[in-house]
């Protein structure tokens, strides 16, 4: 019994140590500026204030960045998941020339470093006159999101028993009818899981946003918030921590309500391959 309690305490000590930076982020964002530089630091804020959040929303460009990030991530997710669902269905359930090498190409690009693609993509998007638009970022994000989504959906699709589709075909359904009525409902958890991962990937992306966008109206959150750190004369840590918390809000929502989909996605694409 004592061993069990000790083990539990030890386990939780480690868990809390890992989570401490996140706890500290929240605490810092709630402290008034004066309390921030107190020595020794206060572990819980003596005075809790939401002034940094208020200032973030009213005095900085944070809301614009947030809006850009939402548009960017939603559009990328919708486009990528729609294309990838059809693509995965085709790769898994149809037979035609070039199918195998295509699957190989998907896996290859899934592992490809962005820095290799970024130079030609930059030249291409500047050439098309798309630089500094959210649309250019949607195109750039497709380069990593599409192989990822395809790979994930491919393994979800492979998990659906083929008999179901055959039964529908025997009953006289067309191939696309079977896809709509049989495959899609079965695939739905996989699609949600893939969409969540794609959304998170796009939400967190930094490099493409850094290179392709440099006007404040089109910047997403990652480069926007980082810019607040670099361009400020003296760094206001509590403001930055408030921005970090706000930036993580969508993730917290996903975590609170949809975590099972995340773990499922892990099993499907991340590791099993």
């Amino acid at each position: 019994m004592i061993r069990r309690v000790l083990f539990n305490l030890m386990a939780w000590a480690i868990v809390l140590a890992v989570a401490f930076p996140l706890f500290w982020m929240v605490v810092t964002s709630l402290k008034p500026q004066s309390e921030l530089f107190r020595r020794p630091p206060t572990i819980l804020p003596e005075v809790t204030t939401f002034e940094h959040y208020w200032r973030l929303l009213s005095e900085t460009n944070f809301l614009t960045y947030f809006q850009n990030s939402v548009v960017l991530s939603v559009v990328t997710t919708v486009v990528v998941v729609s294309i990838a669902t059809l693509g995965a269905y085709s790769i898994v359930r149809f037979k035609y020339w070039g199918r195998e090498s295509l699957a190989f190409l998907v896996l290859f690009t899934y592992l490809l470093p962005s820095v290799v693609l970024i130079i030609p993509l930059y030249l291409m998007l500047v050439g098309l006159g798309l630089s500094n638009t959210i649309f250019s970022l949607v195109i750039a994000y497709t380069t990593f999101a599409l192989p990822y989504a395809l790979w994930l959906l491919r393994s979800f699709m492979a998990g659906i028993p083929e008999d179901l589709e055959s039964a529908a075909l025997v009953d006289g359904a067309s191939r696309m009818g079977a896809f709509r009525d049989v495959i899609l409902p079965q695939l739905l958890p996989g699609i949600i899981s893939t969409a969540l991962f794609t959304f998170i990937l796009s939400w967190n992306e930094y490099l493409y946003a850094l290179v392709l966008v440099n006007s404040d109206n089109t910047r997403p959150l990652t480069t926007g918030v980082m810019n607040m750190l670099i361009s400020s004369f003296n760094v206001e840590w509590s403001l930055l921590m408030a921005a970090s918390v706000m930036m993580s809000v969508p993730l917290i929502i996903v975590f609170a309500f949809l975590q099972s989909y995340l773990t499922r996605g892990f099993g499907a694409g991340g590791v099993k391959g």
Partner: peptide, 9 residues
């Protein structure tokens, strides 16, 4: 969480 958030923290 975003790398940006991790780095800031």
């Amino acid at each position: 969480i975003s790398t940006v958030v991790a780095v800031l923290v």
